[in-house]
Design a binder for these strands. Structure first.
Lengths: 155, 155
DNA sequence: CCCCGTTCCCAGCGATTAACTCGGGTATAG
DNA sequence: CTATACCCGAGTTAATCGCTGGGAACGGGG
């Protein structure tokens, strides 16, 4: 899972859309662009991908705009980022086959590390829905069961 | 915390160093460059930062090279990445003061989200030492207490 | 039915940034 | 003295971000 500003913009825009959807009429990109201070053209680019990903539905013509395809509580942040940001290879192993780097030399000792990190990020972002974000129910999700005092200093 | 290829290369190189340190003589960058297939010049750039960060010690002259400044079990992955990759701002809020974006509009609803994500990554990478990586003790660190079935499909 | 504005839609472009290289310099062992 | 290996700064290439401009569908007024 890749983490870039593009994904962040997409989440911002989706949060704006979820927060301003009255149910009566769609929300135009122009509104979102003004509120979130993102260029309209860039938003269009992002929403094209979000539409292909099935996260939003578009309504054309005057009074048109975008709607969420599902309730905000069922849209996960991970889905949004996955829709706009192509996944990136976190290891140097050949594309597709993670088998090409096992057991030879010290080549890919870090393979498992990055894979596990990616999994951690995925789990976290999948556990947060769009509704959670606009309700500010994000903080305090650190699981207390691993709350060892890992707070030694590096200096 | 920023996640780029630079940080990954640094961790690869440090893992190589930790795995090939016999204790008798330092490890030269030329060796690491050959084993890890990273260009020598780029490695020098990385190790300059690692040295400034106090993670390695250098020995000049023939037979010289680098040593870990501490046992591999006391060097955390987070420290390595922090040493080579400048931290990046994950929100649009003005630099330094995260107070500039509270309560106005929908402006920074995502602020808490990115901050919490960064904290999650930090916690994970701080929980893994260089020794863990070369001993392959990385997988299976997902805390089982949050193992709800979050596996609904997005389609 | 026809015109017209709104809004989504799509392809390509410029500028910023990261990734990486190149050329030198300095300390040290033999 | 010389070869090895660290040290340092500037320069080059490639990718990505974010923007510009024109085209296509749709609703409303005449």
């Amino acid at each position: 899972m890749r983490l870039s500003t593009k994904g962040r913009y997409a989440v911002m825009a989706m949060a704006d859309l979820a927060g301003n959807e009255g149910g009566t009429r769609p929300v135009s990109l122009a509104e979102i662009a003004k509120r979130q201070e993102i260029s309209l053209s860039y938003l269009e680019q992002l929403f094209a991908k979000l539409r292909k990903g099935g996260l939003v539905r578009s309504v054309r013509g005057p009074g048109g705009g975008y709607r969420l395809s599902r309730p905000a509580s069922e849209l996960r942040i991970a889905d949004i980022i996955l829709a706009v940001d192509e996944p990136i290879a976190t290891t140097r192993c050949k594309t597709g086959s993670p088998l090409g780097c096992t057991g030879t030399t010290t080549r890919c000792v870090t393979h498992d590390l990055w894979e596990e990190l990616g999994r951690q990020i995925q789990v976290f972002l999948s556990s947060v829905s769009l509704a959670d974000v606009i309700e500010k129910r994000v903080l305090g999700r650190t699981r207390p069961c691993e709350a060892k005092s890992e707070a030694r200093e590096a200096a």
